[in-house]
Nucleic acid binder design. Structure first.
Length: 293
DNA sequence: ACATAGACCTGTTGGC
DNA sequence: TGCCAACAGGTCTATG
């Protein structure tokens, strides 16, 4: 599920619920996920007000009053679920694979009934994680310090890609998945962006940095394709995940817009040739060998 | 410096 | 219908 558009959608779902609320308790139902939970995690969150929910790359950053920020990564199968907890009503059932549960209280000013709510982190495969870090030192945290640019920010351009890819022999596909260059792209959107840009995933990344107008145009095209595919996914993800309490945001919304991902053996929607699936850098890569050069 | 394979996990899917 | 292998949106580590 979670590449940048999905994580951004989660962020947009969580922020209005969490911001300004206070953590009554954080319950952890196992020792850890991909990484062990920090020993003081529950204690550190308890009683703290949540200042903000933000996203950097595929990380969710939940800033707490008191100088700590929770770092959440969804791995391959993580999701957050918001549920109301009404007085005199049974608690919604805990689901299998709910590993971390926040019990929260809305600020008195915002909520006359004193309603509480529960936000659960569910992750069957447990490739995700939940950590905490000093807010002041967040940008130098080992997980974040080397991250590349945000592809939806102003930094992404043809010139940026040319500079970043110059001399790289790695396949374009691999370079785009490198979170230290562009942060937030994953397997699906790289495949889709390359199709939009008519660029082959197997060509050397450095070929986009060749001198001349042709390479510059291809790099600019790719930058624009990355931006547009992420924006389109975000637009459609937002509409489907709006009801946050009922869906876990797993596969099912933008997939109908896929042009190549998961379509091996089907006709290219642009030229009619068959979509190929080849492993590049250890990941399934879908592309049209006829019109992606 | 780079590419590749393997590791971590459970759930779903497709072939027989 | 059942069984089993292959595969899945991510990323870190070890190996060559």
């Amino acid at each position: 599920m979670p590449e940048l558009p999905e994580v951004e959608t989660v962020k947009r779902g969580l922020a209005p619920a969490l911001e300004g609320a206070s953590v009554r308790a954080l319950h952890l139902h196992r020792e850890g996920l991909r990484f062990p939970f920090p020993p003081n995690l529950a204690l550190l969150a308890a009683g703290r007000r949540i200042i903000s929910v933000a996203r950097r790359a595929k990380y969710l950053l939940i800033e707490l009053e008191g100088g700590q920020t929770l770092i959440s990564h969804l791995g391959m199968s993580g999701s957050w679920r918001v549920e109301e907890v009404r007085p005199n009503a049974p608690l919604p059932p805990k689901l299998k694979h709910d590993h971390a549960v926040l019990l929260l209280e809305r600020s008195a000013a915002a909520e006359q009934n004193g309603q509480n709510f529960r936000v659960s982190y569910n992750d069957p495969r447990r490739f995700g994680f939940l950590l905490a870090a000093e807010t002041a030192a967040l940008s130098s945290h080992p997980l974040l310090v080397n991250l590349g640019i945000e592809p939806l920010g102003n930094a992404l351009s043809g010139a940026f890609l040319q500079a970043a890819f110059k001399g790289k022999k790695a396949p374009l596909k691999t370079a785009l998945l490198n979170q230290n260059i562009i942060a937030g792209l994953g397997n699906i959107y790289v495949c889709e962006a390359l199709w939009r840009a008519r660029l082959s995933p197997v060509r050397a990344a450095g070929s986009l940095a060749a001198s001349g107008q042709k390479a510059a145009a291809a790099a600019a095209d790719l930058a624009q394709s990355i931006r547009s595919v992420l924006e389109d996914a975000l637009a459609s993800g937002g509409s489907h995940l709006r009801n946050y309490t009922q869906t876990d945001g797993s596969l099912g919304y933008f997939q109908h817009s896929f042009q190549v991902y998961g379509r091996a053996g089907e006709a290219c929607r642009r030229c009619g040739e068959l979509i190929e699936n080849k492993t590049i850098g250890g990941r399934s890569s879908f592309y049209c060998g006829a019109c992606q050069k």
